[in-house]
Design a protein around this nucleic acid. Structure first.
Lengths: 235, 235
DNA sequence: CGCGCGATTGATTCGGCTCAATAACTGTGG
DNA sequence: CCACAGTTATTGAGCCGAATCAATCGCGCG
């Protein structure tokens, strides 16, 4: 399945400056290059699975990844996404708990792997890296607390509108204002926390109201402000 | 409202060894004692409010605190609780975002306040403290991801059973196997993410099934294993 | 002892889930 | 390049959990 490939160099990684590794010096980057490895995962392939213990940190070099959790009846719940420059698996290593989520490639992706030893050595020796990681985990909490509140209090229509805006923030829009990621209706449903059929009906509803346009998996955001209003207020 | 009181000493704080401060040496503890302050908040009083920026870290010395967030229509959603030894407000400081939650004393509480400067100085100079904080924020994520999945997928009855077990884990049981915290039905509802009336009906349901006993605000857990089964499986 | 908020119960409504049937689409091999 | 098989998307009907609204009860507190 996954295929080992030559390491891309951290120093020339376009995403480094937006990542937790932004503060590393060239010496640290060279060490990282020596210790890490890199694999290609094809679309749909699992990078790691919830419940297991990771031996290191995963960092997305290229591609899009969904992080999801399997609920009581085997139903998937998407927790977040990762794209180039994002790291995964750190929560599990830091808390010494099994991985809370499964990571799956949404498209062919190249993922670097940094052994735990190297990760902890950075944490111990570089306070700036520690602070970056703390900032990252703290932001996660901020996002999670909002999601939790929304999930508990908002209607599925509001949540869908919100998720569309979230996808826009995460992946951006292409030249046609379409959300730049391909997700199945089922995957959207497991973000919103509802049934696939409901997503289809709600999307078609939003289209009818002129807030979005649909063309297969492509979702064009027509009225972003309208979506935001819908997500906040009721109906 | 809140009343400044003489600082309790960190070194003699019964909760220190279970807290993020467990690794501090006596010198660091003395410095902490000098920098911090301590206030008494009475039941129902707000310790801090979501949306504002904290000037430091809050640490519960005595008492129980709920951390909640106000949703779109002013409805409260309880995110977590804090008790002696727990710290609050760090996510906001670390991510430089406004506080995501409001902290309210559930009973008269004594809360220490550690100025941001001192907090960041500890983070910078003591890698063990950084690691403790990282472990804490990472565990938060683990909990939040489970809550999120449950909120999205489980029935309100299952969530209620789960919350009762969660309260047991957090606050423990008294000599009568009653959950050792007093919450209104409304507060329970804003944990579970449902309406007050629903909580009442569901609690009475659990009582009928012999899983719990009720006596006013006191909730006695009769069949913990049964509750756990209910929380996991369907109905 | 009475007031008022929190708790409880009942009736009704509605959103959203489930089940079922069809249609559109994707990739695969002939 | 087309036919086929297996998904994935869509639509419809019916049902159920849970929210809402309304009324009463009971307990704690002043």
């Amino acid at each position: 399945m996954s295929k080992r490939v030559p390491n891309p160099k951290c120093a020339s990684c376009g995403s480094r400056h937006k990542s937790v590794f932004c503060s590393l010096n060239s010496e640290q980057l060279i060490e990282l290059d020596e210790e890490k490895s890199c694999d290609i995962y094809s679309k749909g392939e699992a990078i790691f699975k919830e419940g297991s213990y990771p031996r290191g940190l995963f960092c997305v070099n290229k591609g899009k990844v969904k992080l999801s959790r399997t609920g009581a009846e085997g139903k998937e719940q998407i927790l977040r996404f990762a794209k180039a420059g994002d790291v995964m698996g750190y929560n599990s290593m830091l808390s010494n708990k099994p991985l809370a989520a499964t990571a799956t490639a949404l498209e062919d992706a190249s993922i670097c792997f940094i052994p735990a030893k190297e990760f902890f050595s950075l944490l111990k020796d570089d306070p700036r890296f520690s602070l970056n990681m703390l900032e990252l985990t703290a932001k996660n909490w901020h996002t999670a607390s909002r999601l939790l509140t929304d999930m508990a209090q908002k209607s599925s229509k509001q949540r869908l509108a919100e998720m569309l805006l979230w996808l826009k923030e995460t992946f951006g829009l292409d030249e046609d204002d379409c959300i730049d990621v391909k997700l199945s209706r089922e995957e959207i449903a497991s973000m919103v926390g509802t049934a696939t059929e409901a997503v289809i009906r709600l999307l078609s509803d939003l289209k009818k109201k002129g807030l979005i346009h649909l063309d297969g998996k492509k979702i064009q955001l027509v009225d972003i402000h309208g979506l935001a209003t819908l997500a906040e207020l009721n109906d």
